[in-house]
Design a protein around this nucleic acid. Structure first.
Lengths: 211, 211
DNA sequence: TTAATTTAATTTGTATACAAATTTCAAGAG
DNA sequence: CTCTTGAAATTTGTATACAAATTAAATTAA
């Protein structure tokens, strides 16, 4: 367990609920669990705290943040502002090659039947990122990455939106087509609708069965 | 030099140019300079890296990020998306008491003649934050805080915008008046103009004399 | 019983020491 | 002269040990 990977591992284990929402993490416990000294644990915790993947609980202890509908809604509202911006700034630099790569990702999601929900989610995000990355906006991309990590915790194993998958997929294809035919405004509108819909689905679900 | 304050100190020293843009920071150097062991230095560095106030330079070393016009523009574009959102979400919960407190801040900036440029900048941001905080959106506020920290590095000692100060101040008063009279859309429009203007002033300046 | 206060336990913060990795620099080959 | 190659020096990563702080428990007073 090397340093960078401890951070990655801890992040993944938080996503997967090994350290569930509300759990207080102490350095000793993690140090024992991952079989490393407290120093690399501290490094990882410090980073996760700065990204708000952990929050202070009391004066000195760290907690996996509880999941709330209102925070989920907030995160989607922020994405709703920033992702269209990313798409607009990426647009002039989108190439057919890039759009092709994006389409390959969609096909991979479609065809590969035995993908886990988590893998599907990862590919899904990769698709969005493929488009946004052409913007060459380092800060914007960093924020989107961070926001996505936050949101991921809410998706659980994405079983929530399994029935939404087909609609989502259709919209992705439409989005590509609009970009291919240089219809930026329509593409942005579709993207906004796409994000808003996903947000409403999630928050609706959270308000029904909290946690 | 306690732990939390080392992070604060280091951040301030980066703002003030003690560790200038492009400088590579190594743990030993900082450890010597601040008279602490490398452990608290590592903690601070880890946090600053996660906030992009430091960036990787090579495989393992950290650097104070160079200042570029294009990144400044990017930061202001992001603010242009998020601050109006914060104001909109704060609006329903703005009280006359809060608006009064905000006005007190403006007066303080006006009256106190012997404020440093840095102090003026801090109060200026406090004014904006006073309004945004009513939104009770933790993630949004965290992002705005982080963005402001990034932007602060570009303002140097804010001597750039000294001649802009009066205009800016006037706009702040107008903003308060519009909020007082429940004209949200007009207030948001003014805020957008306010941010865009500041952004253009800065990037224009940066493109003339880079660094 | 409840609340406040002191004491014990745990947990975090820091220093030092050493291992592993990276970076630098110089020597040699092309 | 430029580009490799390789060793020396520097720098980062990690473990252990101890100090300081926080948290929990227990004792006492109201």
């Amino acid at each position: 367990m090397t340093k960078a990977s401890l951070y990655q591992q801890l992040k993944q284990d938080i996503r997967q609920g090994i350290w569930p929402a509300g759990a207080v993490l102490n350095q000793q416990k993690l140090s024992d669990y991952y079989q490393v000294s407290r120093i690399p644990v501290r490094d990882a915790l410090q980073q996760l705290k700065a990204e708000a993947l952990l929050v202070m609980a009391g004066k000195a202890s760290l907690m996996v943040p509880p999941l709330t509908a209102s925070e989920a809604e907030e995160l989607y509202q922020i994405r709703l502002q920033l992702e269209p911006m990313a798409l607009r700034r990426a647009f002039p630099q989108l190439t057919f090659s890039l759009l092709g790569q994006a389409e390959d990702l969609l096909q991979q999601i479609e065809q590969d039947q035995h993908l886990s929900a988590a893998d599907r989610g990862a590919l899904n995000w990769q698709f969005h990122l493929m488009l946004y990355q052409a913007s060459h906006c380092p800060h914007l991309l960093r924020l989107l990455h961070s926001l996505h990590q936050q949101v991921e915790r809410y998706l659980g194993f994405q079983e929530i939106s399994l029935n939404y998958a087909d609609t989502s997929h259709q919209e992705h294809r439409e989005l590509l087509e609009l970009l291919r035919t240089q219809q930026l405004d329509a593409a942005v509108a579709l993207l906004q609708q796409h994000i808003q819909q996903a947000g409403e689905l999630l928050t609706g679900h959270l308000r029904q069965q909290p946690a």
